[in-house]
Design a protein around this nucleic acid. Structure first.
Lengths: 233, 233
DNA sequence: TGTACATCAGTGAACGCGCGTTCACTGATGTAC
DNA sequence: TGTACATCAGTGAACGCGCGTTCACTGATGTAC
């Protein structure tokens, strides 16, 4: 809480706006997010919000970035307690953190992973970095295991040219030299992880699916860890 | 096209309404779906639509059911050409059909498998049956392979009690006797399949991901088929 | 320490818009005798 | 075959609502001299 009183007040109001925005995401969904409603809950006239946020889309971007960072923080916190060489345990920790956060903030999770919001496109320059924190953690786990010679590398050979180019970009972006075959498996584990979480959070398993147990998800995590080639405990 | 002229006209208008609704899903998203806009495109005054559809939510339900059925039809059509004992090929065919349809109808796909539409809950009595067609196909493939003694059953043992109850319900609903361990893998393959499709359709792989190639998805399908325990070609 | 000025948060009215839904109605199409 | 009635699609006006955004403004807080 540094800066002048005015700056502190401004920061506090900013936090209030994102807090209220998150609440509205939960209550009414992203598409119904409205500056006027946020202003109402902020106890202020609607036009006043424009002192803090340029437009409705900018508020959405704010919430997207905020959401990615909260998810990233949750994952980082879970990983902080794990020994570096417990590769499988680290993967499981990431999975549990993602699922835990998704259940805690289903509306924000849906904003990030539940399909595009009509008429809104997240600006890359603000969302790419926070949006890649989880996958970056996953790549880190795979890279560590690979460096230790403990990652099973599938005999898939090289990817086709179109994919190679993309993989090269991925390697460059995340500063790794994992081979194509590992990255392919990594993408599956990553997409599969979020697929499982999404199905559970979005209710695809039906109304009868037990909400009190992690048993299914824990099994899924083990299989996904196998797919990635991580050594068994 | 049976029935009286009036009935035929009514059916035609109904089809027009769902067609326009689908188009609006594509153009503006589910949350922005509006009876007035549909009426406009139908060339009719807004109140006239109420002769065909009780409310906006009922139109949404119509589109949900229609979407599930179109997806189900696409999967069935793909499966129709496959020999019954080509278990892995059948699984791959389902996957390709799902992905193909998702790319052809991304907005409807998002309606079905993206996050929930705020303020709308699909009525179970109308959506459960069409909504389970794909998973029903998958279970059929697993059951056939299991009956032929060609499905690898993982040594996971029995599921915990909470899940057992749910599995019992699944077995009853889909008329199968597959053991817990197989169903667990089946759920992973199912959720993983849709996770991969969702990531690709929703653009989670980033703007640079090549849109012209199936190579990544084909690899993913093979791993998911392995996870399910299907025999290699 | 005091004064003049600049910055900034918030006000309140207004703009033009689209929405879901209801209602009394007109006129055409179908049906029963 | 013709007539009386019922059914039904579609009209047009109206209800009350919330939205994003702009604009000229007031008054308090900060800053430079």
């Amino acid at each position: 809480m540094a800066g002048t009183p005015r700056e502190r007040a401004r920061a506090r109001t900013m936090q209030e706006i994102t807090r209220i925005g998150r609440q509205h995401l939960t209550d009414y969904g992203a598409a119904a997010l409205s500056l006027r409603a946020v202003a109402r809950d902020l106890g202020v006239v609607s036009s006043a919000v424009y002192r803090y946020v340029r437009s409705r889309d900018e508020l959405l971007t704010l919430l997207v970035v905020d959401g990615y960072n909260e998810l990233g923080d949750a994952v980082d916190a879970a990983l902080a307690e794990m020994p570096r060489d417990a590769y499988r345990a680290r993967f499981v920790a990431v999975g549990r953190a993602v699922r835990g956060w998704a259940f805690a903030e289903p509306a924000t999770y849906a904003l990030l992973f539940g399909g595009p919001v009509p008429g809104y496109r997240a600006p890359d320059d603000q969302t790419v970095v926070p949006g890649t924190r989880v996958v970056s953690s996953l790549i880190g786990i795979g890279a560590d295991a690979h460096r230790a010679g403990l990652l099973a590398v599938p005999p898939d050979g090289e990817a086709p040219p179109a994919l190679r180019t993309w993989f090269d970009g991925v390697r460059h972006q995340f500063g790794t030299d994992l081979p194509d075959a590992v990255l392919t498996r990594g993408v599956l584990s990553w997409a599969g992880l979020f697929g499982c979480v999404s199905f559970e959070v979005f209710g695809q398993y039906g109304a009868d699916f037990p909400s009190r147990t992690d048993a299914m998800f824990e099994q899924q995590l083990q299989v996904l860890a196998d797919d990635l080639g991580l050594p068994r405990g």
